[in-house]
Amino acid sequence: MRYAMAIDTKKCVGCADCVVACQIENDVPHGYCRDWITEKTVGTYPKLEMEIRSERCNHCENAPCVRCCPTGASYIAEGGVVLVEAAKCIGCGACIESCPYDARYSHPEGHVDKCTFCIHRVREGKQPACVAVCPTKCMYFGDLDDPSSEISKQLRTRKFKVLSPEAGTKPHVYYLI
């Protein structure tokens, strides 16, 4: 089992529903977020192109944050999901420094926090909160090892990319382009 997410940049409108749904589902304190939106426009008026992305932890296969965590609080759980065990985390911030995606933040309660792919929901057979709420249905979550999963189909039929491939992290969040 390899959990992954694919996000269709052609459909995403940047509404940030995924951000607020995550904040409420995971009780992320006000002023912090586990996912966020980037909008990039290139060119000069009127020859422009835009890409909108909903970003979060990439749940990298080769996760620098896990490698550098001195206490083992950051670890890779089932399906390749990268998690932080708050009780073990001493809040040293090494993982925050090492993440090329800036996906982690220091929670005011003293530990580091980030996207969990809503593994607590996934274990109940539900979709992550962001995926379940997205009005444009532009996010796909599932098992890459299952060729019949929607995400496998999307990655077979669509062009896609990952963020900062040069970092060698092997991300599990894909962007359909």
């Binding site: 509404c15 940030a16 529903d17 951000v19 607020v20 749904a21 409420i24 379940a132 709420v133 997205c134 009005p135 249905k137």
Partner: peptide, 14 residues
């Protein structure tokens, strides 16, 4: 009107 998916304002209606 929503097909099970509120918009960010509806989600944040809380």
């Amino acid at each position: 009107h929503c097909n099970g998916r509120l918009c960010p304002r509806g989600t944040g209606g809380l």
